[in-house]
C-alpha cells in the first residue's frame, strides 16, 4: 500500500521534472566496429516505468546497443538522450549491469566491496569508502538475498550469486533507468526468481529497465515491452502486440525449429490467459 503510494509519488516527480521526455530515446544511431556496422539506424523511445526486453539472435548488436548508449563504444552517427539530456549529464540516473563474463572474478575483493563500487561516483575522487556506504551496500545485498555472503571473496560465489552481486551494485545507485546485459545468462532457478522479483519491484517504483534477454520462452512472462533487434530494429512495443511469430521470424530468420517451440509456448500462454 505504502509502496504503491511512494511509487506514484516518484512517478509523478519524474513526470514533473521531465515532462514528455522519455527515459531513453535513441535517434538514428549507427554503430560500427572497424568500418563494419554492427547496428544500423536505430530509432527508439523507451516507455517510462516499464520492463523492456531486448531480444535478438547472437551478433544482433544487443550488447552494442547498450554500450553505445553508455558511451562505451563510439557511435558512427545518431544521438542518444537520457531523460532529455546527454548521457554524460545524466549518469547518476542510469544504472548499468554488465555481462558477468566481462570481469575477472578471481579479483581479490569481497561481495560487499563490489557492491560498494556502485557508490564510488557518489563518494567522489580520493575519498575512501565509509561505514555508511558499506551499510548502503549491505542493504542492497540484502535486497538480492546475498547478505550472508557479503564477506565472501567473489570467486567463491556461484554464477548466480555473482550475477546478484552485480545487480546489487547497480541497485545501490538508486537510478531511474537501468540497463542490464544478460542478467539471466547461466543463473540458477532461484537467482532467476530473485532477479525477476527485483525487476518487478523496480517497475513498481516507476523505474525503467531495459534487459538484454536470451530466453524467448520467458519474454511474455517477465516483460511488458519488447524490442526485437537484428542489426536493425525489427519491432518494438508492448509484448502482447509485438512478440508475434511473424516478428520473431523477421528477427531470427530461418531458425524455424526454435520458432515453432516458442510459438507453441505462446499459443499455450494465450489460451491460458
Amino acid at each position: 500500500m505504502i509502496r504503491s503510494v511512494l511509487a506514484q509519488q516518484s512517478r509523478s516527480k519524474i513526470e514533473n521534472e521531465h515532462p514528455a521526455s522519455s527515459p531513453l530515446s535513441i535517434h538514428d544511431m549507427t554503430v560500427a566496429y572497424h568500418r563494419k556496422p554492427v547496428i544500423w539506424d536505430i530509432d527508439y523511445t523507451a516507455p517510462l516505468g516499464k520492463l523492456v526486453a531486448i531480444v535478438g539472435p547472437n551478433g544482433a548488436g544487443k550488447s552494442t546497443l547498450i554500450n553505445a548508449v553508455l558511451d562505451l563504444v563510439p557511435k558512427a552517427s545518431g544521438e542518444v538522450r537520457v531523460f532529455g539530456e546527454e548521457y554524460r549529464k545524466q549518469r547518476d540516473r542510469v544504472g548499468y549491469v554488465p555481462q558477468r563474463e566481462s570481469v575477472d572474478w578471481d579479483f581479490p575483493v569481497n561481495a560487499l566491496n563490489v557492491v560498494a563500487m556502485g557508490l564510488y561516483r557518489k563518494i567522489g575522487w580520493c575519498f575512501p569508502v565509509m561505514r555508511r556506504h558499506r551499510q548502503t551496500a549491505m542493504e542492497a545485498l540484502d535486497r538480492v538475498g546475498m547478505a550472508d555472503y557479503a564477506k565472501r571473496q567473489i570467486s567463491q560465489l556461484s554464477g548466480g550469486q555473482q550475477q546478484r552481486v552485480f545487480l546489487a551494485r547497480a541497485l545501490v545507485q538508486d537510478a531511474d533507468l537501468y540497463l542490464m546485459d544478460e542478467p539471466f545468462a547461466g543463473v540458477d532457478a532461484s537467482t532467476e526468481r530473485a532477479i525477476v522479483e527485483i525487476l518487478r519491484e523496480l517497475r513498481e517504483r516507476g523505474r525503467t529497465t531495459l534487459v538484454v534477454h536470451h530466453d524467448l520462452q520467458t519474454v511474455t512472462e517477465y516483460f511488458d515491452h519488447v524490442m526485437l533487434l537484428n542489426m536493425r530494429l525489427v519491432a518494438t512495443g508492448p509484448t502482447s502486440e509485438v512478440f508475434t511469430r511473424e516478428n520473431l521470424r523477421k528477427t531470427y530468420g530461418g531458425k524455424l525449429a526454435l520458432l515453432d517451440q516458442v510459438g507453441h509456448k505462446m499459443t499455450l500462454g494465450e489460451s491460458g490467459g
Binding site: R91, V103, M117
Partner: peptide, 22 residues
C-alpha cells in the same frame, strides 16, 4: 593511497568504471 579506490575499480571492471564516468 589517494587513488586506491579508483585504481581498484579500474582493475576490476573498467567497463563499469567508464559507464560511471570515471
Amino acid at each position: 593511497g589517494l587513488l586506491f579506490k579508483e585504481f581498484s575499480l579500474l582493475s576490476f571492471d573498467d567497463k563499469f568504471a567508464s559507464s560511471q564516468g570515471w
